[in-house]
């Protein structure tokens, strides 16, 4: 991405977000990208006067990521979406749908993850939650 991208960790993400809010940035959205079997990228997009700024948080899938809905309340919707589609969890959400925002009980566990679907073929123990 041609815009400025700042790497953050799960400990610093809340602090950095609070700092950027004071600077006058608007919360745009978050994007989750699956990197490999264990890791995902969570990218936070902010904007001030049509200038974008991104945070990149690389974590493993079983990490409990702190929710930034304590800083920007409106982030709860996109965090719930990521919870649904990627099966990763956010801590301290403003409204937690507990993975029922889009999915009913009968659909697959983490539909946007390619690698978990592959793992079911080899019947690895970690694939229990990814059965189709």
């Amino acid at each position: 991405m041609k815009e400025e991208t700042i790497p953050v960790t799960k400990e610093t993400v809340i602090g950095e977000t609070a700092k950027i809010k004071i600077e006058g940035y608007r919360f745009v959205t978050m994007t989750c990208v699956e990197l490999d079997e264990n890791q995902v990228d969570v990218i936070y997009h902010f904007d001030e006067n049509l200038q974008l700024k991104h945070f990149r948080l690389t974590v493993s899938k079983d990490t409990l990521i702190p929710s930034i809905s304590v800083v920007y309340q409106s982030a709860f919707l996109v965090e719930n979406e990521i919870q649904d589609l990627f099966g990763i969890h956010f801590d301290n959400l403003f409204i937690d749908y507990r993975r029922t925002l889009y999915l009913g009980g009968e659909t697959i566990a983490a539909p946007f993850c390619k690698f978990t679907v592959k793992r079911t073929d080899k019947s690895a123990p970690a694939a229990v939650q990814a059965e189709t």
């Binding site: 745009v28 959205t29 994007t31 989750c32 990208v33 699956e34 997009h45 409106s74 919707l77 996109v78």
Partner: peptide
């Protein structure tokens, strides 16, 4: 494509 993410305007307006 590896990943395509679409953030639509209504998604941002629903919290309002």
């Amino acid at each position: 494509l590896d990943r395509l993410r679409i953030r639509t305007p209504t998604f941002a307006n629903i919290p309002a």
